[in-house]
Write a protein that binds this DNA or RNA. Sequence first.
DNA 1: TGCCCCCTGCAG
DNA 2: CTGCAGGGGGCA
Length: 287
Amino acid sequence: MSSMPELPEVETVKLFLSENIKDLKIHSIEIFNPKSFRGSPDEVEGRQVESVIRKGKLLIINLGNLNLMIHLKMSGQLIWCRKEEKFIGGHPTEDMFGLLPNKSTRVIFEFSDGSKLFFNDQRKFGWIRVISNDDLKLDSFLNKLGPEPLEEIFTYQLFKTNLLKRRKTPIKVALLDQEIVAGVGNIYACEACFLAGTDPRKKVTDLSDKGLQKLFQAVRETLNTGIKYGGSSKTHFVNPEEKKGLFLEYAYVYGRENLPCKKCGQPIKKIKLGGRGTYFCASCQVE
DNA sequence: TGCCCCCTGCAG
DNA sequence: CTGCAGGGGGCA
C-alpha cells in the first residue's frame, strides 16, 4: 500500500519514472476502476513515453501529442515492476504479500518490454486523465497553480503577494492553497511553520515581514529535505520500486503529538486548522 | 471562507 | 462504534 501526496513524494516518483519508463512504448492498459481513468485507452496504446514532468502535486507523462495527467490525491501510488515473478493474474480481492496487482490496483499499464506500471489507490480519490497538448495549455487546474517553490520563479516578493490574497487565513492553511504555492501539503506546511518559528494559527496579516521571509526559506528547505529523504511514508507511501520515504523520521512536528519537541523538549501539540490536523510546538512557534 | 463529499481501512 | 488520514471540488 502506499499513498501519494505532496511535492516531494510526487517528485520522487517523477525522478524514478523519468529514469525508467522514458522511451518505453505502452502496449496495453487494463482498467479495474473506470473512475480512476478518464479517456480512451485506445488513444494511448502504442504510444511512447517522451518525458515525465511534475507540476505541483500533478504528474504528467508526455506521449507526444497526448499526455497522461495523474493526480494521486490521498492514497495513490505508482509502482513500476519488470519482475515477472511479482505478477499474478486477474484482480485479487485480497492482498497477497509482495504480489501485484493487489486489492487497491485500479489501472495497469503494460509496456512493450513486458514491464508494468501499477496505479494503486486505496481510497479511489486519485485519477489519470488523457489530455492533448492543446487542452493541457488550457487546463484550468494547471493554469491556476501557483509558482513552483523550488524554481527561480518563486521569489519572496511573489510569495508575499500571493499570500496577501488570503489576508485573514491562518498562515498554515494559506500554505495549503495551491494557487499561492504549488505542491505544499499538510505535512510540509506543518514542518515549514516549525522551521520558521511561525505559529500556524496566526493570520497572514499578523506576520512580520521578517517572519514571512523566514517562512519563505523554510518552505523551500523542508521540501528539499523531503526530496532528499525520498518523501514521507506516513501509512503507506512508497516509490515506484516500493521503497519507503524516510522524511518523517526527521520531521520536527508532523505526527509527533505529545512527543517532546526536538528543539525545546516541550510536548508537540495537535490542533485542527481548516479541517486538517496541525502539529506544532507552542513554545518554539510564537512568531 | 467553511462545510460536505468523494472512498477505504485502520486505530482507539 | 467513531474519528481520522499526504487532496481538492462543489456548494452555500
